[in-house]
């Protein structure tokens, strides 16, 4: 019987080496940083699918989120990258963990066969889409150097959010939507005083 866990992690290590080598070969040390971020994103995502324990899956998302932030920073979008870490890792992942953490390690395991089948289907789908995209892009004609460098300064982002002729309306609408969702969640989850009094005594749960 082959130890699937060992095979998976060896594959992950090979993937990491391949990504780093490809990055170093195509763009020097910056490519090495790209390879590192790509390893984090892909490795984290694969581990999230592969791991049998829900909590370990959730922890592996940390690598994915951090790697995404690394991509943003490598592309010069510092603000988005740091917001990614602050919101996704510091907020969303902490809440996610809060939800799944109370599952005990042995009961939280998922059936490997189903996960394996899902992985296979997903891998095929991703490969198909990537092949389609790769075939449709005219690699030689990409005008990377001719594009005007997009402004990623925090000041410009802030001005874009409050200038009346730019994004102020969508921004405020999103804020209102979020507030409504928050109030609604509180309304649904709240316990009325009658809930407390009506509850029979469970006799020391």
């Amino acid at each position: 019987m082959v130890d699937l866990q060992k095979v998976f992690y060896s594959g992950l290590a090979l993937l990491a080496i391949a990504l780093h080598g490809w990055g170093l070969a195509s763009a020097g040390p910056a490519g090495l940083a790209f390879g590192g971020c790509a390893t984090l994103v892909l490795g984290g995502a694969l581990m999230c699918l592969w791991e049998r324990s829900v909590v370990r899956s959730a922890f592996s998302l940390m690598a994915t989120f951090t790697g995404c932030a690394g991509f943003f920073i490598l592309l010069g979008a510092d603000f988005v990258g740091m917001a990614q870490i602050l919101i996704y890792v510091g907020g969303i992942l902490a809440l996610l963990l809060f939800g799944v953490m109370l599952s005990p390690p042995d009961m939280a395991e998922r059936k490997l066969a189903r996960v394996g089948g899902g992985l296979l289907v997903m891998g095929l789908g991703v490969a198909w889409v990537s092949a389609k995209v790769a075939a449709s892009v005219k690699w030689a004609q990409l005008p990377a150097d001719e594009l005007p460098a997009p402004s990623t300064k925090a000041e410009d982002i802030g001005i874009a959010f409050i200038a009346p002729d730019q994004y102020v309306v969508p921004f405020e609408l999103a804020a209102v939507l979020l507030t409504v969702a928050l109030v609604a969640a509180v309304y649904i989850a709240r316990r009325r005083i009658s809930d407390f009094t009506a509850e029979p005594d469970q006799g020391g749960r």
């Binding site: 990055g23 763009a27 910056a30 490519g31 790209f34 920073i73 690699w139 990409l142 150097d145």
Partner: peptide, 11 residues
Amino acid sequence: MLINQPNLVLD
């Protein structure tokens, strides 16, 4: 391509 963009930090 992507990683040859001029605004790369380390590059």
